[in-house]
Design a protein around this nucleic acid. Sequence first.
DNA 1: CGTTTGACTTAGACAAAGTCCATTGTAGGA
DNA 2: TCCTACAATGGACTTTGTCTAAGTCAAACG
Lengths: 138, 138
Amino acid sequence: MSDLLERLRGRGWRMTAQRRVVAEVLNGEHVHLTADEVHSRAVAKLPEISRATVYNTLGELVSLGEVLEVTTDKRAKRYDPNAHRPHHHLVCARCGAIRDVHPTGNPLADLPDAERFGFTVSDVEVTYRGLCPDCASA
Amino acid sequence: MSDLLERLRGRGWRMTAQRRVVAEVLNGEHVHLTADEVHSRAVAKLPEISRATVYNTLGELVSLGEVLEVTTDKRAKRYDPNAHRPHHHLVCARCGAIRDVHPTGNPLADLPDAERFGFTVSDVEVTYRGLCPDCASA
DNA sequence: CGTTTGACTTAGACAAAGTCCATTGTAGGA
DNA sequence: TCCTACAATGGACTTTGTCTAAGTCAAACG
């Protein structure tokens, strides 16, 4: 269950009530919360936690590589704790629902040298867009 | 040249000084300006143009399919006038430089039915990340 | 051409998301 | 237990974008 929390403890991350709560909120599969949603849920468990702390903690988790920042829409960034299994995202264009997906193939290999403009390419992010079953039938 | 302007005129788009200036600013290859950058450049040509008009006009160009919205980073949306030729983006993780790229292969075909969760998938957006030559040597 | 009209533009208020900073609190080691 | 470096707080601030009411103008029409 508490994989994220376990990993953080193992890395000697200084544990505080606030950090524990944020990590707990983020735990799970197909979790893609905005900073604000993380804050709301954290407040439910620990009413005195501040917005700044949630932002700080999320930023730190991202730096540690334990959580990924996902920007699927133009609104708020979302935070994805599933950082240890590489994956991409499928987003509903209407309601914003997000699923983790695992396409076959390797898009990095699909970018010819001639198209790299001298860049050192290290990562690729793929976002599929469409309509989820609910929105498609509406 | 004024391909964009030509196309818009051809579509019976009501032409005003403000709209012309915005279209002119956006013209070109590898152009990925934020709304604010578009506004600054538009102001240089037409000082009394307002921010709201720039936003309105950009939104309209996107609706018309003449300009694409790109969200490569967590900051502002960027606007890409190269909407005719499908392409993806290569972004420098440090300085934010953006190039249009044309990978081989079709990522849409790489998403198995089992990974679609019943979604009607219509589009895919690929963002490569790395360091541009300047940032890599620094 | 002049009139008319509905679409376009404007300035500024407002909202949402995120950052910054000086102050206060506390985890964890000696 | 006490200390101290690190963490949390909250409120002001910044950035990005939206909205509205009132004024302006492009273009169709006669």
